[in-house]
């Protein structure tokens, strides 16, 4: 399954129920409440002391609100859902996970959950949960690896249909970063650091990036009329010549305008990230990042000097720095 096909199939899951409503096997009961409170170290008497609870605003025992999900969980059987699959009881959440596993995203990690509580539960209450796939992200590059975020929303109701509470749950289904091969000399074995997006390359710009790789900041020059141009183009807009070469810029200039990027976060870029538009002394403009100044210290007109620096083991970029005073 290719990526567009996978993503189209994934989108088909959005809005679907993961299965029929699930009723908790036991009603809300004092035994499970006591176990929970012991495990959590919650000594609030309204959960476990009948007399104290009767005298409280609740007028009787209530369950800790955070137990909401526990009442309708399937217990140990959840660990072996696949064995329970048949035509009449297919779990869409499992199908979704299977689909992504088959597509090369085998790992799963829970990332977020939120709950809301409509009313307190009391011993004897029955809890029915109903879960819908709420959203599926596009492919995301995360620190763990590339994958998809799957969001579900569960509504908890009583048998009369009145809402008791809700829960959203987000998991990342992902392809873990490749482990270094056994023979690899890299002893650090750290997960691969997300890298900056690569520039798309073609006839009209490869030579410029080759220059960067060689440590040169180049500016295209018309061989007939001498006009400098950036971004480069295959023809001179002034004299229509297709003959060109380049000059190497000294990399000095002044900030014409700038942006400080904050949102959205993109792997490989650390925010806040200043991007400057610089009037190079040769007369053309260039967009690149600025280092060595806090965002609040950046000023239009500030003198800057480009250096070519390695972003990772493969890519170099020009980076502007505040010019040395007097230069």
């Amino acid at each position: 399954m290719d990526k567009p096909e996978l993503e189209a199939t994934l989108r088909g899951f959005v809005g679907r129920e993961t299965g029929p409503p699930v009723e908790g096997p036991d009603p809300v009961n004092e035994v499970m409440i006591r176990h929970w409170c012991e495990a959590m170290g919650d000594a609030n008497p309204v959960y476990t002391d009948r007399d104290a609870a009767a005298a409280s605003v609740h007028g009787g025992l209530v369950a800790p609100p955070t137990m909401l999900q526990a009442w309708s969980m399937r217990g140990l059987a959840m660990a072996d859902l696949r064995q329970q699959q048949d035509e009449t009881h297919s779990d869409q959440q499992l199908a979704l996970h299977e689909l992504l596993t088959q597509a090369g995203f085998p790992s799963v990690v829970a990332t977020n959950s939120e709950q809301g509580y409509t009313r307190y539960l009391r011993p004897g209450d029955r809890v029915i949960s109903h879960t819908v796939v709420e959203a599926i992200s596009g492919e995301k590059a995360t620190a763990l690896g590339i994958g998809y975020f799957l969001d579900t929303r569960t509504i908890f109701r009583d048998p009369a249909g009145d809402e008791l509470g809700w829960m959203t749950f987000r998991v990342l289904k992902f392809k873990p970063h490749a482990q270094p091969a056994a023979a690899a000399p890299d002893p650090a074995a750290a997960p691969a650091k997300p890298r900056r997006l690569r520039p798309p390359l073609g006839h009209d710009n490869q030579w410029w990036w080759d220059g960067i790789a060689a440590g040169e900041l180049r500016i295209q020059r018309c061989r007939d009329c001498g006009t400098l141009r950036h971004p480069p183009r295959p023809m001179c807009g002034r004299c229509q010549s297709i003959a060109w070469d380049w000059v190497v810029s000294r990399g000095a200039g002044a900030i014409h305008s700038y942006v400080v990027l904050h949102h959205p976060p993109v792997p490989g870029y650390e925010v806040p990230l200043p991007v400057v538009l610089v009037d190079l002394d040769e007369g053309t403009r260039l967009v690149a990042n600025l280092a060595g100044r806090k965002p609040a210290e950046i000023r239009i007109g500030m003198r800057v000097q480009a250096r070519i620096e390695a972003m990772d083991e493969e890519m170099k970029l020009p980076v502007f720095h505040p010019a040395e005073s007097g230069s």
Partner: peptide
């Protein structure tokens, strides 16, 4: 887009 992608624009 090659003039903007690597710099985060």
């Amino acid at each position: 887009w090659s003039w903007y992608l690597p710099f985060g624009l």
